[in-house]
Design a protein around this nucleic acid. Sequence first.
DNA 1: ACGAGAACCTGTTTGC
DNA 2: TGCAAACAGGTTCTCG
Length: 277
Amino acid sequence: MPELPEVETVVRGLSAALAGKRLARLDLARPDLRSAIPPGLANRLEQRRIERFSRRAKYILMHIEDGGVVIAHLGMSGRMIIVAPDAAVPRAKHDHAVFRFEDGTELRFNDARRFGMLDYADATAFPDYERFRLLGPEPLGNDFNGPALAVALAGKKTPIKAALLDQQVVAGLGNIYVCEALHGAGISPKRLAAQVQGERAERLVTAIRDVLTRAIAAGGSSLRDYVQASGELGYFQHHWAVYGKEGEPCPGCDCGKSIKRIVQSGRSTFFCAKRQR
DNA sequence: ACGAGAACCTGTTTGC
DNA sequence: TGCAAACAGGTTCTCG
């Protein structure tokens, strides 16, 4: 499911439904997740209040009242599902962790492919949390701008498509939004990253911010069965210009069925060869 | 040191 | 219809 807009949407849903609630019980059904909360820590979290939720790149952060933080990543197939106290929804296959709150509400972390992760850092360890150390700037933050992106791309021999998927260059983009942003900026995914400088870098920053902002406003993109924590579907997939649209006309130009699919570093890239140079 | 490719998993879609 | 191959929103390790 999840790139930055989807994770942001989930975080907003979790905040609205769960911020301020006190944990009653934490069941960890799968201790072998990519990174897992050590089972011994589960009861330390019980009885604690969740003060708020936030996001860094594609990570979901649950801030505990004692300063500790639960860090979650949804990988490719992870979902956060809120179950109301009276709903009596049976636990599903791949529900790997269940956070049960005092009022009976449950938050279930479900992840079929198990590329996601759950982790915990206490108040002392969190400021130096290893997974965040090398992350690049937030694309919607003030540290992300044309000159900064140009510096990050300088000297990179990889195609710009691959460079934008590198979370050290900019943190939060994934395959869909990289394709969409490059289309918005009119830049070929095959162009050498080092060649994206000056005005091109400015255009790319603008396009990245634009597509992410619009996607968040739409509640993210729903592929397959992805739903928001609230149970609603995101609808940004209806606004994609190129992703998944091989052989269709490019909305940016009148050049017929121009959208191509190629494979770059093992992943599909969709682009218009006429508009993107 | 960097970049490409494989590996990690399960589920769904596509093609023969 | 049935089965196998291809493909899927990500990250991380290995190898050249």
